[in-house]
Structures are given as C-alpha cells and as structure tokens.
Write a protein that binds this DNA or RNA. Structure first.
Length: 881
RNA sequence: GGGUCGUUAGCUCAGUUGGUUAGAGUGCCACGUUGACAUCGUGGAGGUCAGCAGUUCGAAUCUGCUACGACCCACCA
C-alpha cells in the first residue's frame, strides 16, 4: 500500500481520479436494455464563458444527482455541451478584433468574420469545459454537443421550416426592440429596465388658424417629435375638448398634425396632452392605428436621425435631443423643464438604451405553442422544485407575446429563407421568397439575418440526442428526467424548451425542474465584473479543493433561496475533507496491508457500539433517500456530514480506539470499521467525489471496475434495526456528556481520574450500563465506577440526573459548593418551566380531546420523565452539602 | 400598478404535512496538544422565530394587515 500523506492534498488527488474515471470511460452512458435510463439536463454554458459560481453551483448539484443515479444502477447520462451565444460571442470576437487589428467586423467582411469566430470558438470554447472538469463533473464527454455543430444546425433550420409551414412563423413590419449599439432586433426578454434621471420637457404646439392658442405636451424624448403625427387628448378633457379635430403646427418641422381624442391619454399626467409618434413608441403605434395616423420613421439603425428628421438628419439621437431642446428654447416653444426619474428600456447585452423601431423581422406565433406547455404543468406532467416557479411560468405563458427571432448579426444560424435576385444581384422583392433548409434554386440568395440564440437552445434536450433523426440514444434517453437551472432563464429557455419538446416530440422534455437560487455576493448583490465582487470558482478550487467547493455550494443551496456567498465559507468544506482524511488515516494505522478484510459485514453483529452505529447509518440512508426525492440536497448532505463527523468520528472511532496508543485494533474491529466507513464514503461520494474515491481505493485492493463512482448506493433496510441498543447508547451518551460537563464546570483537569457513581433508574438499566462500563472508562478518566439502584449521594459530590438515573461524581476538596448549587438550581428551574408548559397542555380538556393520542401520550411521557428527574434533583438540592 | 420571495443566535443561514426542550456553520468564553485530526477535541454562553391581529386544544410553521429588504412582470408620456 502506498504511503499515506499526513496532509490531504486535493490537487494531485483530484487530477489523478479525474483521469482515472475518464480513462476507464466511467462517465459513459449508452442505451442498455437491462438498465433504466436517467438523463439530466443543464443549460449549456456560453462558449464565451468562463466558469462562474452559478455554473459551479449548478454543476455541483447536477453531478451529485447524476452520481447518485449512477450508483443506484441507472444508465445515467449527463450530456455536456456549449451554446454559441449569438450576440455575446460576436461582441467578444469583435472586441478582440478591434484591439488586435483595429478593425470592426464590417472591415473584414461577413465570411472572414464568421471564420474568425469559429477559430475563436475552437481556441477558447473548451475553456469552460476544462473548468467544469476541474470541478469533477461526470459528463459523458464523448457526446459533447455545440448548438452550431452540423447536426444541430440542421435541426434548427428544419424546425424553422416546419414552423413556417404550419403558419407559426411569419415575417412582418412591426415595432420591435432595437439596439442601436449591436444594431439588431431583440426579443422582449432581452430587454431590461434601468432607472435614469431624466427630464420632462413641456413643449407648446401652436394651434393652426387660431391666434396665440397652443397646446402643451410633455415628453421625455423630445427628439421623437420629429416623427410626431398627431396630438392626443382625452375625449372628456374639458380643457381640450374644443380643440379636437383642429390641427397644430409641429415646431421645428413646420408640419401640420391633427389633434385626436383617445381614452388612453391620462388627463392628470404631465400636461394632459400626448404627442403621438407611431414609429417610435409602442402605445403611440397602437393609437396611430386607431386613428389612421402616418408612421414616420425618423431614425437609422445606428441610432442617428434619418432624412425624415429635417435639419437633424445625421445627428446621433442624444445629440439631436440636446439640439432640439436648445432650438425649442430659442424659438420659444419650451414651456418648462422638470427633473424626472423614470425607467428606460436597455439591452441586457449592450446596456444601450433600446429604441422601439419599425422593422421587418421574423416572428414565432407563440400562443399555439404555449397552450400545451401550460397544460403540461397543470397536469403535473412537469413538476417544479420549488413549486412556486410554476406560478411564474403560468403568468408568462398566459400573457405570452410573439417572439422576435431574427437578429441582424453574423454569428448564428442563418435564417433558411431564400430570395430571387434581380439583374443587379439584389433581392427581387416582387417575387415570393422560399423557405427551405437547402438552396432551392441556383442563384437564389439566403436571408442575411440569423436566428436568436434561444431558437436553437430550445431544442437542446432532443436535438443533442440526434433529433430529428430517429436514433437509439433519443429513443432510450428521451424524454429526460430532470432539468437543473437557475430562474434567470425560466422564460428564455425553460419554458420555450417545454413548448418545443411538446410540439416536436409530443413529450415534455423532462419530468422535474429543479430551480436553484442564484449565487450573490456577501451583501446579496449580483456578482459582476463591474462591481468586481465576483468569486472565481477556480481560485476557490485552487485554494480549498474541488470537494470543498462542491460541499460548500450544496450545503448552502437551500431550496428556493439565493446564496449569499462569503469565500471563507469554503473553509467548511476544506475542514470536513480534512476530518475525513484523518479518520481514514486513523483506520489505516490499524490496517494490515496484506490482509483481506471481510467485504460484507453481517449486520447481526454483537457490540452495542456497532449496533448503534449501524442504526445511525440506516436512519441516515432513509432520511437521505427522502430528502433526495424532493431535491433537498442540502438537507441530505447535512445529515451525511453529521453522520460522518459527529457519530462516526466523535463517538464510533473514539470507542473502537485501543486503550494503549501502541496497541492495534483487532481484525474484526478494523473490518467492521472499514465496512461502515465504506458505506459513509458511498453516501458522500456524489457530493465529494475525489476524496471519497481516493479513500475507497486505499481501503482495499480494488479491481478497475470496483471504483467508488460505480459502486452500489447503500440500500435502506430498517432504521429501527437495533432500536433498543440505539436508545441505550443515547442514554450513555447523555450520561457521558453530563459527566464531562461536571468536569468542565468544576475545573477538574483532564488527566485527573474521577470516581463515578450511577444510581440507575431501574435494575434492568444497572445491568445494561454495567455491561458497557468500558464505554464510560474509554471516554472519561474514571477510577472507581459503581452502578446500582441503591446508591446514596456521597458528600461533596457533583450530581446530575439523566433519564431518571442519578450520577454522582465525588469531588472532595475540589468542588465549589456555590457553583454546584447554582448549577443544579439552574437545571431545576429549567425543568420546572418545562414541566409547567407540559402541565398546561395536559390540564387542558380541549387538548386531551382534540390532539391525536400519540401526541397526548408523548406529553404524558415527558411529564413523568421530567417529574422523576426533577424530584431527584430537588432531593439532591435539599440534602446539599 | 400587479405579483413573488425574504425577515429565526453577534454573523451567514437550515427548520418537509401545525405537536422538537427551535438547530447548523462561523464568531465568542473556558479548558485541552507527541497519541487520526488545532483545518482539532471537550464543555459553555447566546433566540419574545420582524411587529400586530386572527384561526386552532396547540403557530417559527396557516390567514390577514403593517414595517423593512430583494426580485419578477407591466408601465404614465
């Protein structure tokens, strides 16, 4: 056997086992008729990405789940991959291009640029995958997919064609969210709100044919007035009723526009009159349709004013705003300016202020897709953990709006639409386009635009398994079992995946959705580059080890709650790993390297300590099973932690430890301890795979296929297997604690031997405790040890009462009488209060009538136990000297 | 404007269907290192479960309201 390092060093061990697992293909999953499949889904990280704490959390959760299932005998598949992340990736590459060559994408041209993105993807796309490996994720790497790999792209385009054929995709000129920085349309989900300090400008519009009369409107975007086509007032507004139907002169533009009446206008807001710019505001657009107003687009796609903007043609939108305000003031149209704090729409990517712009784009009709997705959740074909996300899901689907899927980008799936060309090679708008994956006729040119990234992501669960082909893998692994994701992409991805799954495969893509909280900084703020408050998981792995990072993240991952992460928390995991390692080192000191210890220990073993320990293991297996079925991983892990640290290390190992330090434990003892320790390693392995595998391999000589990762998950048998023994041991633990407490309170040095007298509650207990005298002697430095039912309290002793038994520790010359009296009085007080509350219940007729029998009985037991203990303590106090 | 979530020990948080003497980690106090482990052990202090009202025999847990905080959706020019 190799030498065992005194210190646990995660780095070498993690590397060793990761390559062992991959070299022996232990993460591989393939269709196997003898096994049930279990498939897990995770958002494919962006190809531009570096691993952040959110990934680390979700990966830890996923990996724990998949390892448990693998150990439980499922053919467990975690299919990894990356997402091409349209805008994000294009921007990163363009930025690099600018930095290195001083060029933008238009300088290099589309084809060259896309080539560059691919190169970039090949070079950097694997980074996040490597980082996931460092965390220990057991993905089937041979099945890795990319949303723009060949098969996937084909699936995306076929989906477009089939949705088009079904009438669910259409093209049209509508007001869309336009980002002037990225120069593309965006979906509603890609637009965020930002609070800004702005102004409310009050501008007067002179009434035509009416001397000195004018109407005042208020606006936050004065530049849009260039495109005004009306003024709207409320039909009931007495101030303006007489003006309805008249015309006003649009300042700066000398255009005549009508005054119309519309319910939409709020009389009390601003000046009570609204300028209408149908081309640049959603509500104005609708009002414009109602009143047949002209739609005047005044803006170019880069956010500059176009030729419809008169003098301001060519100016940037914000420059134009300044100039227009100045001109209005100069020409006497400005009435007043108020400071005004309001929200503006910004692009979630570029953070630029979004302009609503009329633009010809492609859309998906969502309502027909949303209906089945709603049904699926209502029928519980799909379950949310925690359940409350279901409501969010409903709310979004019930109010769904059509999805803008075309993007004016270069990086992404080209829209499979083809156009005839005229003699100049330009699109011939007079002829119909053709929607087709492949070029229908020579000479036709393909739509320039690409599809929203999520238009490919929503196919992930089945496209990765070979859909639309009929593959064995698809047949076996799909529909999948669980999706692990954060709520930030509930609408972007989760809901759309469900729609796509139902529409294209007639199945929900997964049964369960486990939604994790988001990882925030110590103060609960989002981690971001600009705040510089990010915690790099790789730094943490480097510092504390991957097992420690995983442990910490899962223990903090309570259902439904965000995680406020303080980097010092990782010490918890590191300390735990250290504890496990030392427990192993202790066992190994007593192991003979050549010896083959029994592989399977019969549960029918004699000793109290073993029987108690086995009961604790059984109880934990049961509880863990229960927690896992509801995705309460933190609870499960906490229980395993307590089992390992508190039960196994603090009590079990202390008790099997030989009396003399150079003495060796018996083979039986070692064999049993190894067996129990192995079970603990199995329970812990999904959470802390590396250290457990290392120890597993060192506990015995193993064959290659006897890796812990493929070991059988502990099977629960009976949590009450040794109920009596477990209870007795519990009493012994309490007695020992009370004696330790006496020692500490009375300042008895650890190496001072004490006498212990136990006046047991009954004769049966005398025997039981006497049989286990060694336990007391092992954990307490005891000289004389006496157990009986007729012992009287020696003078000058400290006392305690545990489960009806009196414990006396004679401390002549050492005891501090005042302190001892205080100690007992305090205990009497506590018990009296407790008793009072119990009596309160038992004296209540209604309680006796209404509470279940077991609860009443429990209170009665508590009462009699407390009374016994109390009377004994009171007697001690009365005789106290 | 509509909705969701949170408020439990100094700090960070658990607490499943109402019945526990309300827990953990960390921090704090005392004692303890050649003896697996100081990344540790033993013992201890520390909580009106945000506030108010209600339902109930019984509420940290259910209901309503209030306060504070976070988020989501829709938005008023």
């Amino acid at each position: 056997m190799q030498e065992i390092p005194k210190k646990y060093d995660p780095k070498t061990i993690e590397k060793r086992w990761y390559s062992y697992w991959t070299n022996h293909n232990l993460f591989e999953a393939k269709p196997n008729p003898d096994k049930k499949p279990f498939t897990i889904m995770m958002p494919p990280p962006n190809v531009t990405g570096r691993l952040h704490m959110g990934h680390a959390l979700q990966s830890s959760v996923q990996d724990a789940l998949i390892r448990i299932k693998r150990m439980q005998g499922f053919e467990a598949l975690w299919l990894p991959g990356t997402d091409h992340a349209g805008i994000a990736t294009q921007n990163v590459v363009e930025k690099t291009l600018k930095k290195e060559e001083g060029k933008n994408r238009h300088d290099v041209g589309r084809q060259k640029f896309v080539e560059k993105v691919w190169e970039w993807k090949d070079e950097y796309g694997a980074i996040i995958i490597d980082q996931m490996k460092q965390l220990g994720t057991s993905c089937d790497w041979g099945r890795q997919r990319f949303t723009m790999d060949e098969g996937f792209s084909r699936a995306v385009q076929e989906v477009f064609v089939s949705l088009y054929d079904e009438g669910l995709i259409y093209r049209g000129n509508y007001l869309v969210n336009w980002c002037p920085v990225d120069m593309t349309a965006l979906s509603d989900e890609e637009v965020d709100d930002a609070e800004r300090n702005g102004h409310l400008w009050y501008v007067r519009y002179p009434i035509i044919d009416s001397d000195d009369e004018y109407i005042v409107i208020a606006t936050t975007r004065p530049e849009t007035m260039l495109g005004d086509s009306a003024i709207a007032v409320h039909p009931e507004d007495e101030r303006y009723k007489h003006l309805i139907g008249k015309k006003v002169k649009l300042p700066l533009m000398d255009r005549e526009i009508p005054i119309v009446a519309d319910d939409y206008v709020k009389m009390e807001f601003g000046a009570g009159a609204l300028k209408i710019t149908p081309a640049h505001d959603k509500n104005d657009f609708e009002i414009g349709e109602r009143h047949n107003l002209k739609v005047i687009n005044i803006m170019n796609t880069d956010g500059t004013i176009n030729e419809n903007g008169g003098l301001y043609n060519g100016m940037d939108r914000f420059e134009a705003r300044k100039k227009i305000v100045a001109d209005l003031e100069d020409q006497g149209y400005m009435v007043k300016i108020e400071d005004y704090r309001h929200t503006v729409p910004i692009s979630s990517r570029s953070k630029a202020v979004i302009e609503p712009l009329i633009s010809r784009q492609w859309f998906v009709k969502m309502e027909p897709l949303a209906k089945p997705a709603l049904e699926a959740a209502r029928n519980k074909d799909i379950r949310f953990y925690p359940q409350r996300w279901e409501n969010e899901y409903y709310r979004w689907l019930e109010n769904i709006r059509d999805w803008t899927i075309s993007r004016q980008l270069w990086w992404g799936h080209r829209i499979p639409v083809w156009y005839y060309t005229d003699e100049d090679g330009e699109i011939d708008e007079s002829r119909d386009y053709i929607v087709s994956v492949d070029q229908p006729e020579p000479g036709m040119i393909q739509d320039e635009d690409v599809l929203d990234t999520w238009f490919s992501s929503w196919l992930w669960p089945f496209a990765t398994l070979g859909w639309p082909g009929k593959t064995e893998a698809l047949d076996y692994f799909y529909p999948t079992n669980v999706l692990v994701s954060g709520y930030d992409i509930l609408f972007f991805w989760i809901a759309r995946m469900i729609m796509a799954g139902l529409h294209f495969t007639d199945h929900v893509p997964y049964d369960d959705i486990f939604i994790t909280g988001m990882v925030k900084d110590k103060q609960g703020r989002w981690m971001s580059k600009s705040l510089g408050n990010g915690i790099d998981p790789l730094d943490m792995i480097d510092q504390y080890g991957a097992d420690a990072v995983r442990y910490c993240l899962i223990i903090l991952c309570a259902q439904g709650q965000d995680i406020k992460l303080d980097p010092t928390k990782f010490e918890m995991g590191r300390n735990f790993a250290n504890k496990i390692w030392n427990a192993f080192r202790f066992l190994s000191m007593h192991m003979d390297s050549g010896k083959k210890y029994e592989q399977n220990i019969d549960y029918d073993i004699p000793g109290l300590v073993d029987r108690w320990m086995i009961t604790r293991v059984e109880q934990t297996i049961k509880a863990v099973e229960d927690d896992l079925s509801r995705y309460r991983l933190n609870e499960a892990l906490l229980k395993i932690y307590a089992l390992v640290w508190n039960d196994f290390c603090d009590w079990y190992l202390e008790l099997i430890k030989p009396d003399e330090f150079d003495e060796k434990m018996s083979d039986e003892t070692v064999g049993r301890a190894i067996f129990i320790f192995e079970t603990l390693m199995k329970l812990l392995h999904p959470f802390m795979p590396f250290i457990t595998e290392e120890i597993w391999q060192r506990l015995r000589e193993r064959d290659v296929d006897d890796a812990l990762i493929r070991a059988q998950w502990p099977v629960f048998e009976n949590e009450n297997i040794y109920k009596e023994e477990a209870e007795l041991f519990g009493t012994i633990q309490s007695i020992i604690s009370s004696i330790r407490n006496i020692r500490a309170e009375m300042n008895v040095q650890v190496n001072t031997e004490i006498d212990v007298l136990i006046n047991a509650a009954d004769d049966a207990l005398v025997d039981k405790l006497s049989d286990n005298e060694n336990i007391f002697r092992k954990l307490l430095k005891i000289d004389n040890f006496k157990i009986s039912t007729h012992l009287s309290r020696p003078k000058a002793s400290a006392s305690a009462v545990v489960d009806g038994s009196e414990i006396f520790v004679p401390l002549a010359g050492v005891i501090d009488f005042d302190k001892e009296r205080d100690r007992i009085e305090k205990e009497v007080d506590r018990l009296e209060k407790f008793l009072k509350s119990i009596n309160g219940k038992l004296n209540n007729e209604k309680f006796l009538q209404n509470a279940p029998e077991s609860v009443v009985q429990n209170e009665r037991n508590k009462k009699s136990d407390t009374e016994t203990n109390l009377s004994k303590l009171k007697k001690i106090l009365a005789d106290f000297q």
